[in-house]
């Protein structure tokens, strides 16, 4: 790690040098690609056993889709840092206001967006 930083320092110096006698290559445009996913510990919702990246079972069955077919089924994190589908959890807490995994009192830490 430290080696690469050193490399980069060297790079920038060299770049500066090159700009004096004009750099041979300059980056003009960059099209990067990144993949997003929910920042979760366990990628399966313990309530419906479906991956949190997919819509929960109930949503899949009901197919409530917007025009593109993306199901509006977000993830919710509790204070215990366990995560579930929001739909699954909101049904769960009606019966038992505890996290199904650690039995702690359930309170929402944050919601996926």
């Amino acid at each position: 790690m430290s080696a690469s930083i050193a490399d980069e320092n060297e790079n920038t110096e060299r770049l500066d040098d090159a700009s004096k006698n004009e750099k041979m290559f300059t980056l003009k445009k960059w099209n990067a690609v990144a993949m997003w996913s929910w920042d979760v510990e366990c990628d399966t919702c313990a309530i419906c056993r479906v991956q949190v990246m997919d819509a929960c079972l109930r949503c899949q069955a009901e197919s409530k889709k917007d025009s593109y077919g993306k199901q509006d089924c977000v993830v919710v994190w509790g204070e215990c840092n366990h995560s579930f589908h929001y739909c699954c959890m909101s049904l769960w807490v009606k019966q038992n206001n505890r996290c199904p995994l650690c039995q702690q009192e359930w309170s929402i830490q944050r919601m996926g967006k």
Binding site: N31, A32, W36, V74
Partner: peptide, 27 residues
Amino acid sequence: KEFYLSKHNGRKLQWQPTLGHCVLKAR
């Protein structure tokens, strides 16, 4: 990354260098 995560809560980003492409000026 900072910009994106500020807009989208609870997500993480993984860069995919294999898919990126660029335009370079060359002399």
